[in-house]
């Protein structure tokens, strides 16, 4: 295969990784937002402090993912975002509410603080549900019909549950004492929802998409792919077991988060395998949708230089704000 023909694949990989990074990173932010209403006033402050220095950079991965869709696969961008016009608008409104509430709540008068706390939680919920719905519509190739809507609806509740679980695991990692205790409780509540959702989606996907069915239920591919669901199942069970162990209050506080990220990554690979070589399943392959090789090369040069730098300062930021979350202050 010539380099020009490989370019779309390279960009599909980069775009996919940007989206995956977004889902994991903003996933824990949104999860913390979803859990907010359950916390006391003081705990809310700590929860926000745990995501404060990161949320902006986390959201930038969405800009990169969508930006790459726009600039590398313009035809698919038009098709996908045109079909998902309203859910996209709802997600954006959710993200706006979440992002500004975060800042307003500490600066507004006391009487308004409660309202901004609510806007923070509501924005997080709106954004997560819309993202789930969009993912569901996307996986089924944007087809219309009640079966597809029902499928999308299942994902629209599963993804927020998964974000809540991720947020709870983040809090187990970043907080101590009472809040950490509560986070463990929240994780225990979210876990069955996530497992149920994943099971339902795994069963339903082959039913709603013939392409996916053929991909997975064929020998010998089926055997080769088995590690993906098996490892996910083990990771999820391990996570549940850990929630009962006192060790996550100490040294192992990061392990639940890591296990759940593993599940997200495996899910992502499963999805990528189901879809490739389409950008819009059954409708548009990555080569049909791609920009010209000339444009892709110019962007690739930028990616090659910038992404390592971005990785470096992301690591720097997480190191500066490593350890347990403490009150944030401008000084």
């Amino acid at each position: 295969m010539s380099f020009d023909n490989m370019l779309p694949i390279i960009f599909m990989v980069i775009m996919g990784l940007a989206m995956l990074t977004y889902v994991v990173l903003d996933g824990y932010d949104l999860g913390v937002g979803l859990l907010m209403p359950r916390a006391t006033l003081a705990q809310k402050d700590t929860m926000i402090a745990s995501i404060g220095p990161f949320w902006d950079a986390n959201e930038t991965w969405l800009v990169l993912g969508v930006g790459l869709l726009l600039i590398a696969f313009p035809k698919a961008h038009g098709m996908v975002l045109g079909a998902l016009y309203l859910p996209v608008a709802f997600m954006l409104i959710g993200l706006i509410l979440r992002g500004v509430a975060f800042d307003f709540r500490v600066k507004a008068q006391d009487v308004h603080k409660r309202g901004w706390n609510r806007a923070f939680a509501a924005g997080s919920a709106l954004a997560s549900v819309s993202q789930g719905w969009m993912l569901g519509r996307y996986v089924t190739g944007l087809q219309d019909g009640w079966r597809f809507d029902a499928f999308a609806a299942v994902i629209a509740v599963t993804l927020p549950a998964a974000y809540a679980l991720l947020g709870a695991c983040w809090l187990i990692l970043k907080t101590e004492d009472e809040l950490q205790e509560r986070a463990i409780g929240w994780a225990k509540k979210a876990w069955p929802l996530v497992v149920l959702g994943i099971a339902a989606i795994s069963l339903a996907t082959p039913l709603v998409s013939a392409t996916v069915r053929e991909r997975w239920f064929q020998m010998p591919e089926f055997i080769a792919l088995l590690p993906i669901p098996l490892t996910s199942a083990i990771a999820l069970l391990g996570l549940r077991g850990l929630l009962n162990s006192h060790r996550i209050r100490g040294k192992l506080c990061g392990l639940p988060f890591a296990l759940l990220v593993l599940v997200f990554v495996l899910g992502f690979f499963g999805l990528a395998y189901s879809i490739y070589p389409f950008v819009v399943i059954d409708q548009l392959t990555i080569w049909q949708a791609a920009s010209s090789p000339a444009a892709l090369k110019v962007i690739l040069a930028g990616v090659a230089v910038a992404v390592p730098a971005i990785a470096a300062y992301t690591v720097l930021a997480y190191r500066v704000f490593g350890g347990k979350a403490t009150a944030l202050s401008y000084a």
Partner: peptide
């Protein structure tokens, strides 16, 4: 996105807090 957005968003946390 590559040169500006990540730069400002990543260092904003350190600048503010």
């Amino acid at each position: 996105v590559l040169t500006a957005f990540f730069l400002e968003a990543s260092f904003l946390g350190i600048m503010l807090f």
